[in-house]
Amino acid sequence: MAQTRMIRLTVNGETGSYTVPVRQNLVDFIRNDLGLTGSHVGCEHGVCGACSIEVNGDLVRGCLMFAVQADGAEITTIEGLAESGRGAALRAAFTARNALQCGYCTPGMLATALDYVEGGGAADRDAIRAHLSGNYCRCTGYQSIVDAVCDVIEGRVEA
């Protein structure tokens, strides 16, 4: 089998063709080849959630998918969210509630929280905690993140 393969994909609205090693995972490609270092690598085995990104509308762990599997995909990373303005209310709420400290889990946490909010999730603290339960944060104790998500759902945030 060839060591590399050509893929074509759209990341944050920008389409390109790339030659990638077939063994390279998606988040390494996004970080190292595209320079989108906002997506973080925490465990590399799908447990911590730091590398969560949106692939074709689904929330995906960038460390559990190979770059070649993303051929033809549309991908949105934390940089893309910031540039498009999508998730602005959540970002404002995260700042107001200090729902991040070191910021390393934040790209995945924000993507997961956005997935919940855009999916019509209710301001139910247990349901929010359940939805976030695949994203590890060592700093905050999670409460402020739950607060931020509730603030957005209940319309307490001006983006």
Binding site: T37, G38, I78, R91, F94
Partner: peptide, 11 residues
């Protein structure tokens, strides 16, 4: 926080 929420940190 704003920087980190936009993926602009430097780890």
């Amino acid at each position: 926080t704003k920087r980190l929420l936009q993926g602009r940190g430097t780890f």
